[in-house]
Amino acid sequence: MAQHLIELVDISKDFDGEEALKNINLYIRDGEFLTLLGPSGCGKTTMLRIIAGFEAPSSGKVFIDGKDVTNVPAYKRKVNTVFQKYALFPHLNVSDNVAFGLKLRKIEKSKIEKKVHEMLEMVELQGFETRSVEALSGGQQQRVAIARALANEPEVLLLDEPLGALDLKLRKEMQLELKRMQQQLGITFIYVTHDQEEALTMSDTIVVMRKGVIQQIGTPIDIYNEPKNAYVADFIGESNILPGVMVEDYFVEFSGKGFNCVDKGFTPNEAVDVVIRPEDIKIVPPSDGTLSGVVSSVVFMGVHYEMQIDTGEHTFLVHSTSKAEEGVHVGLSFFPDDIHIMRKDVEE
């Protein structure tokens, strides 16, 4: 089996003149949980549909397991999809829905029954065989959709924002469920979402996209800690982004002061974007901090306090478990490796 289970080579797609994907090159490994992350319109769903076979790319090739499937229609690909709105067949009950793909392949009836039972057990819907799909709750319908897709034993499972319609608590539970399922089954999951928290929770690899172009590919930790550009930094987690100048390797100037940092490889005095995560900034007495300012707002968020500190040059967002009072003059402190330097965006 090819190590790169899926390969997208130079994929571009345009719809009536509008470019949805621009020259995408991506490989997906067997057995990994990969998430396509980005806002609406960034092309992630299009990419998923191209892999599924519902859309043909305007140019480029798609390889699954080493074979060129660019022109192979969806019903011949060993790929199954969990649709955003589940797309359960209303005229069939749960069991018939799950068995749909199996029945098409004319598998023996007893084997089908066994498989259906197995699948329903996996999604914790045992006993739901004869239920009508329209009488199920959103969460249950979604699990039927997953069972139906997995019953076919695909090599790859595609999930198109499947948790969007669920309430928060259920969503979080399902996230863990899906991750567990993927690890148990050992197959590749390709997941599409705009929710960065979801992506960080579940994925082995995240692909951040914007306007049809891949911004960054990496593990959740990499992307979170080392965003490649301001867009990624802004999209993932909360951050403070400010303009700065890379005076020389390991030294950057911003907010009127100079700081030691851990990045290098920039031309001297290059204009850069500086990113510091809110949770990396500590509130200290004004004399102890490298920067100082006035607390302009304090909001209790449950897990932490979200505070805004106005230094005059910039308003910093700080997350801390200890509270500072509004209007108080405080100092800000952070370590050199909390300072992330990124090249300036050359986006239009």
């Binding site: 790929v79 797309a87 067949f89 098409l104 139906r148």
Partner: peptide, 25 residues
């Protein structure tokens, strides 16, 4: 919904079969 048709295709049904088993009902 068109996704019903696509779901049928996705599960391995040829277009004619998808039409017959999903859209027609």
């Amino acid at each position: 919904s068109n996704s019903l048709y696509e779901a049928a295709l996705d599960l391995g049904a040829k277009p004619s079969v998808a039409l017959r088993k999903v859209i027609l009902p």
